[in-house]
Simulated scan of single mutants.
Amino acid sequence: MPKVAFFLVPRLHLLDLAGPAQVFSTANDLGYAYGLSYVAESEEISTAQGVVLKAQRDWPSLGRDDLIVVPGWRSPRLSPRPPISAGTRQVLRSHHANGGSVASVCSGADALGAAGLLDGRRYTTHHELTDELAARYPQGSIVRDVLYVVHDRVITSAGIASGIDLALHLVAVEHGAEAAARVAREMVVYARRNGDELQESAMLRHRGHLSDVAHRVQDVIDTRYAERLPLAELARAAGVSERTLTRVFTTATGLTPLRYQQLLRLERAEHLIGHGATVEAAARLVGFEDARMLRRLRARDHFATSA
């Protein structure tokens, strides 16, 4: 049974903790065993939302298959020093050096940085903290505007709800994508997003509905957006007629399946272009036959945004 030890700091954000903890707890309920523990440097921890939590002072025995998670704390700006002791920093370093994994949510990356675990690695954090964290830990490489980054058993996430995405990813790594999908469905979390997706993505904007048919089709498109996906194939995946699919999907998301796929392609292409790809290369990578369609969609999207 893999162990997950959450290290709690004063004024931590409840969702930074509760989101990942719920993922692993739900996985437990579904038969994917995890042993959860909550450790802090004092027995009581006040949260940013005013709830007081109790934690154990002693660390459990951890091995190479186990995970330490540091949730974030209230931090519109980084404090002069992260609120962890030298002893805790050593625990983080030793666990990683012995083959274990460490993860952070939001400003929790500051704790990993203080332990030296960001040096020489790619990492991310909440978009409001990226500049400060990049300046504080220049030996690492900050990755901006993504949900989470995995590098050499150091997993960092953007903050708040992205901790759920991070934990679902870890469940998928440990038990497979089907297990992660079961957990997400049990939690009524349909936006199962990848780490390189934007912190504000079309997947999230158009998942705020409860249509199971639309969610099943979105799962297919999200995974295979760069492929040709005929409406008939999507309808078969959802178990409905093409006409019903178009009606239900449009009612739920405000978009046709094709427009949703184009939006995902466009968003991914913009991300690639922003990281140095040419328009032609980006168009090819996201599934367009040539760059003309991408240029038309970019122009239309720019016009709509400016209007």
Rank of each mutant, 00 (worst) to 15 (best):
T26A: 13
G63L: 06
G50E: 03
V52H: 01
S42V: 05
Y38T: 01
G63T: 14
Q56V: 12
A40E: 07
V39H: 05
D58Q: 14
R57A: 12
Y38A: 04
E41C: 03
N28H: 10
I45V: 15
A48Y: 00
A55P: 08
S25K: 10
I68P: 02
I45R: 06
W59R: 02
D29V: 13
V69P: 03
E43F: 01
P60Q: 02
Y32K: 11
S61Q: 15
S37C: 14
D29Q: 15
E41D: 12
A40R: 04
D65L: 11
V69M: 11
G50F: 01
G35D: 15
Q56S: 14
Y32Q: 08
L62F: 06
A40D: 06
R57K: 14
N28D: 14
D66E: 02
A40K: 05
Y38P: 05
V39D: 01
L67Y: 05
D65E: 15
K54F: 00
Y32R: 12
A55V: 02
G50Q: 01
E43R: 13
Y32F: 15
L36P: 07
S25T: 13
Q49L: 10
E43D: 13
R64V: 11
D58S: 13
A48E: 11
Q49D: 12
L30P: 12
S46P: 10
D29W: 10
R57I: 11
G31N: 09
P60N: 00
Y32I: 06
D65R: 13
P60L: 04
V51C: 05
S37N: 06
E44Y: 02
S46V: 12
E44N: 09
